[in-house]
């Protein structure tokens, strides 16, 4: 290698190194600017809500707010449960057993995010072709287990993480 070539090589190396290190720095600067829009520490801490369910009669439901979204808590009657369980999985666009959507031994309690899986509207209760919920925005029908039966929504309504603290209290989140 001639002296001239060596010089050129060293120069190229310097420029490449400068550009690379500079680009890494720019990347590192972008992260805080992006991450600041994620839920902050106070939001993350508000992850749980406790609900008193002692006042809910069979067949009735209430709606509570959890993480800014409605959560439906429905106490189903025995007939409603049987009806939800009589559907063949083949008839479901998003096949899922009703048993898998409730806590064992607490089959009457249906707890789910009251958000249509299509585009996020809140479905209306006791409406639609399947006695469950009906989303007025684009006509999605949900059954008594909150499963999608007809309409544009792709999946069943989501079941959030929840647990029974005691017989009268449910902790969501």
């Amino acid at each position: 290698m001639s002296k001239e070539e060596k010089k050129v090589n060293r120069r190229d190396f310097l420029f490449t190194a400068s550009y690379t290190v500079g680009a890494v720095g720019l990347g590192a600067v972008v992260w805080p600017l992006v991450h600041q829009m994620n839920p902050d520490k106070a939001q993350q801490a508000l992850a749980t809500t406790e609900v008193d369910i002692s006042q809910i009669e069979p067949g009735k439901s209430i709606t509570v707010l959890w993480r800014g979204k409605p959560v439906f808590l429905k106490r189903r009657t025995q007939e409603e449960i049987s009806e939800a369980r009589s559907v063949s999985l083949k008839d479901l666009p998003d096949p899922q057993k009703d048993e898998d959507r409730v806590k064992k031994g607490k089959d009457e309690w249906l707890v789910m995010l009251g958000v249509c899986t299509h585009l996020g509207c809140v479905p209306l209760k006791d409406k639609g072709d399947y006695k469950g919920w009906f989303c007025p925005c684009h006509g999605s029908h949900y059954d008594l287990s909150g499963r999608i039966r007809k309409g544009p929504a792709p999946t069943n309504m989501e079941i959030p993480k929840f647990e029974f603290v005691d017989n009268n209290t449910i902790k969501i989140g």
Binding site: R11, L14, F15, A17, S18, V21, G22, G25, A28
Partner: peptide, 16 residues
């Protein structure tokens, strides 16, 4: 530390 490293690199590039 990062800025010092980049400053040195840029200084050498500038000299070149």
């Amino acid at each position: 530390i990062y800025l010092l490293l980049l400053t040195i690199l840029v200084y050498l590039s500038m000299k070149k």
